[in-house]
Design a protein around this nucleic acid. Structure first.
Length: 467
RNA sequence: UGCCCGGUAGCUCAGUGGCAGAGCAGGUGACUGUUAAUCACUUGGUCGCUGGUUCGAUCCCAGCCCGGGCAGCCA
């Protein structure tokens, strides 16, 4: 009894095989008078393998019609060089069994479907060519994330999903509670009594593991997190999800310069890894999703990323001769149209913008030394890529206690809530830096897929949490 | 959240103030080492929902629901 052969391995065979076992799902079937061609796919790779089922098989007459698109099937037979054009190997069935039927209501057809339709059948879309390819690349890149950091002596830290920090400044948070919403316990002054909640206080889903990551960077030196992150913002765009995966390295004894270098090496590593290990899937994207994909990925690999200070960026934008929907002025945040212009038109390559105005950035970012009082900046950086915009946001953190407290005062934060964060600056503080990479945005860039809902298995966006 | 576009067969779409259309999918048959096979025939409809205008609304109007695009927020 042969063990199962994955379609990927059968297609890569170097010699015929007398007895192999294939298990997978029927993609298409073409009937001839004396036999049928059945294309079987098992998800191990983009392509399926062609199976020839002769009409002489004992169950052929009774069962071949049940081998619809979508049916699960098991085939035993010989792997032989194909007599036809279009494939190197095929399998002559010595037996076939319908394991699980799929009737005519099976929604996936041989012809193309819109991405919008496929989103509505998220339980079946991984069986399509496009989504099979997307999720194979996703798996590979998740592996490459660990490989990149482990090779560089970073430790993987599991920061909490549930957090009591409610003002990290990264966005609106989802409340986590076990209280009865219809009859919550109340305090004497008519407020919901959070002390009666599961954790004895208000808790939320995390918007970032950064602050906890800093704790571990102050012990293990180089760390990274990689996990789900939640934002309760009513964002309805192709680049935002309420639940997404983020990678956040944090490095002790590191400044903004080192942070930018790490970010650039990381992005290039992931692209190179996909280019090497997901070649067939990327070619599929280049053919059906984005014709320029491979050229753009290779271009990004070859060119050093441009580094441009916020102040320089504002000058470039002001002198571009363009009319902006959002005005360009020092002190205002760069808008999507500005970021797109910088990376897509002016520099035509990934751009790291750094040293942003202090007032528009988070409290923990390090104040730049020696800048003019009216133009104070912090050591923040955003990596912008063509087609997507911001893919990474990071900074050197404020390691000086007094400056950190001043930053908290500027942002009206309560020091008591951050006592442990301030302790890091009291006991063995060091310059340190880190960044956050949106895993789905990276996948969008690598695959050319334009909507974040199509690079995450089950998208959570405002109003939608199906499956 | 704001602005814009859309919702007609299982899918992709056309269309009209007066009998609801095509291609694909499905079904039947033919043909073929086929490749999103091909050819012939064929089944299939609450025209998103509610209300309004009208002799008559899928079509015009309003509200709502759903999907999408862009913007803001950010990764």
């Amino acid at each position: 009894m042969p063990t199962r052969t994955l379609v990927k391995h059968a297609l890569d065979a170097t010699a015929p095989a007398d007895a192999i076992l294939l298990q997978g799902w029927v993609r298409t079937r073409r009937d001839a008078k004396a036999f049928s061609f059945i294309e079987v796919n098992d998800g191990s790779c983009l392509k399926g393998i062609q199976v020839i089922a002769n009409a002489t098989l004992p169950n052929y007459a009774a069962e071949i019609a049940r081998a619809h698109t979508g049916a699960a099937i098991e085939v035993r037979g010989q792997l032989v060089p194909s007599q036809g054009q279009g494939q190197k190997w095929e399998v002559i069935a010595e037996s076939f069994t319908i394991i699980g039927e799929a009737d005519a209501t099976y929604p996936l057809q041989k012809k193309g479907h819109t991405l919008e339709f496929l989103r509505e059948i998220a339980h079946l879309r991984p069986r399509s060519n496009l989504f099979g390819a997307v999720f194979r690349v996703r798996s590979r890149l998740a592996y490459a994330v660990h490989q990149f950091f482990q090779e560089r002596n970073f430790f993987y830290v599991h920061t909490p999903i549930i957090t009591a920090s409610d003002a990290e400044g990264a966005g609106d948070m989802f409340r986590v509670t076990t209280l009865d919403l219809a009859h919550p316990p109340m305090t004497e002054d008519g407020q919901v009594d959070a002390t009666k909640d599961f954790f004895g206080k208000k808790t939320f889903l995390t918007v970032s593991g950064q602050l906890e990551g800093e704790i571990f960077a102050h012990a293990l030196s180089n760390i990274y997190t990689f996990g789900p992150t939640f934002r309760a913002e009513n964002s309805n765009t192709s680049r935002h999800a309420a639940e997404f995966w983020m990678i956040e390295p944090e490095v002790a004894f590191c400044d903004l310069e080192g942070d930018m270098t790490l970010a650039e090496e990381f992005v290039k590593y992931l692209i190179r890894d996909a280019r090497t290990h997901c070649a067939a899937d990327l070619e599929f994207f280049a053919k059906f999703v984005d014709k320029d994909l491979l050229a753009r990925l290779d271009f990004v690999l070859e060119k050093p990323f441009v580094r441009c200070s916020y102040t320089e960026a504002v000058e470039i934008l002001a002198q571009s001769g363009k009319t902006w929907e959002h005005p360009v002025a020092w002190g205002a945040n760069l808008q999507a149209e500005h970021e797109r212009y910088l990376t897509e038109e002016h520099f035509k390559c990934p751009v790291t913008v750094y040293n942003y105005p202090r007032a528009i950035k988070a409290f923990y970012m390090r104040q730049t030394d020696g800048c003019a009082p009216e133009r104070q900046t912090v050591a923040a950086m955003d990596l912008l890529v063509p087609g997507i915009g911001e893919i990474i946001g990071g900074s050197q953190r404020e390691e000086r206690l007094d400056q950190l407290r001043a930053g908290m005062a500027l942002h009206h934060l309560d020091e008591k809530a951050y006592w442990w964060y301030l302790d890091l600056r009291r006991y063995g503080t060091v310059p340190h830096a880190g960044f956050g990479l949106g895993f789905e945005r990276m996948l969008m860039f690598v695959t050319g897929v334009a909507n974040i809902r199509d690079v995450i298995p089950f998208a959570r966006t405002p109003g939608t949490a199906d499956f």
